[in-house]
Design a protein around this nucleic acid. Structure first.
Lengths: 129, 129
DNA sequence: TATAATATCTGTAGTAACTACAGGTGCAAG
DNA sequence: CTTGCACCTGTAGTTACTACAGATATTATA
């Protein structure tokens, strides 16, 4: 049983984030010491690890709630997990495509711009009309 | 001189967004009718257009403030505009790289998962340990 | 002209996913 | 025993909006 600060250090997360995840129901309410300090078990620590890794992989809190919902039923299947993951991968692919398109546009526009110390930049002209 | 609703329609923006941009100082305070309704000139409309196009191109409000600061001095140079734009392009390139790395990881992980109606998905196992 | 239906006005609250702060205890070391 | 850090709580701030409530204004229809 470790305290919040140790858990934060052990998982490389922010101490406030842990309280936040508890508040929004991603983490179970932990045990408490006699004086009210939170005490985390190894299972608590694993669950936080899962949450943090999923967040790093770009899953939203809503998606995480879905995944944890499956995990918490204890009889989730590969198919269910894969559905969430596949959707997420598609979302990411879409974001990548959007950003690429955006970058192409900006590259093209900034190529119009001489980048010299002259006034009336064509980039601004283009955006302002 | 058009009113806020018409401006929103003309620029394809949300009527509330216009008030928001005014509040945070991206748009100048417009003229008002005798009864207090906002009245926008063609210049106002062009400025909003600039803001909206930059937002579509992924510029943050802070970056926009910088660009508008330049534009408002009336003697901005190509070099100054290009500096902001180039930084932004680099930020986008970084985001693309991050998302691609993320997608590769997820692709790899979900390949481990059979996607069948079997329990104990290896994807969850991997994330939970 | 009267009334009904929009449109606009204001301030404020909600969204996502945290982060930071203030003011108050608990605990461990010197 | 007291100094200092960790922890407790609730709340406010962040980004870029969006939505609402309640009050006027304007426009359209009868």
């Amino acid at each position: 049983m470790i305290k919040r600060g140790e858990l934060a250090k052990a998982t490389g997360s922010n101490i406030e984030t842990i309280r936040y995840y508890e508040k929004i129901g991603l983490l179970h309410e932990p045990d408490r010491s006699a004086s009210g300090h939170r005490l985390y078990s190894l299972d608590d620590q694993k669950r936080l690890g899962f949450v943090l890794r999923c967040r790093e992989l770009g899953f939203s809190i809503a998606e995480l709630r879905e995944l944890l919902g499956l995990v918490d039923t204890k009889d989730y299947t590969c198919a269910e997990v894969l559905a969430v993951t596949t959707q997420h991968i598609e979302d990411i692919a879409k974001k990548i495509a959007d950003l690429k398109r955006l970058k192409r546009t900006l590259d093209r526009m900034s190529a119009e711009c001489s980048g010299e110390a002259v006034p009336d930049c064509p980039l601004v002209e283009a955006l302002f009309e």
